[in-house]
Design a binder for these strands. Structure first.
Lengths: 104, 104
DNA sequence: TCATCATATCGATAATTGTCTATATGATGA
DNA sequence: TCATCATATAGACAATTATCGATATGATGA
């Protein structure tokens, strides 16, 4: 997974509606109609948001008859958390001042 | 921290340049000039990106003479990781099918 | 005080995004 | 097969974003 992929995931969650949807999905599989009840957006707008969440790999969709059902993709979420954890762990104890003064 | 704040953080990281900058900062404090060397953007553009990273709370900036030095704000990053962990942990074992069929 | 250097802000602009209405697609059941 | 229902796509549009060049700000040192 490269920076482009991480940025795509973050961008997908960088919208209040989508981050709420994603949080709702943490409770388990949800259908589009349930999600539509919760948010004051039209059906096409919800569909647009779900596509973004699916395209980045955070959510998977399955068709069940005429309904669409969505779940969190744990692998992708785990990779994202891993990336952030590595950044958090990478921070050294002391302050490391860069060598501007010498260079300039 | 509310959904709006989380979305703001995610949006800040939802750009390839910024996610790279943030990853670079995991190595320790960095000055603007060092960051500018690494990325093919102009100085005003870097300044713009750093403002976004600072405004959402992910990065803190300090002035050191004529230089600006940036560090990861561990508290904010930890809160973000915590939020994602709660979502990951919230996913139940079995598939929970919602009651579309009965409701419709 | 003033020139210089690093950074921030301004104003402009092309690209992207989030939203809508209207319409298409695709599954279901009579 | 056809009407119906849930969802997806198309097209339009206002708002936001990422970027730049030009300029302002603010610290430093002669």
């Amino acid at each position: 997974m490269d920076y482009k992929a991480y940025a795509m995931i973050m961008k997908a969650l960088g919208d209040e509606t989508r981050v709420k949807i994603f949080d709702m999905l943490s409770e388990g599989e949800r259908c589009a109609c349930k999600l539509l009840d919760e948010f004051s957006v039209t059906q096409p707008t919800l569909s647009y948001h779900m596509k973004i969440l699916c395209d980045c790999g955070l959510v998977s969709a399955r068709r069940d008859g005429i309904w669409m059902r969505y779940t969190v993709r744990q692998e992708t979420l785990a990779e994202m958390i891993g990336f952030l954890n590595r950044i958090a762990e990478g921070i050294p104890e002391g302050i490391e001042v860069c060598d501007c003064k010498e260079a300039g």
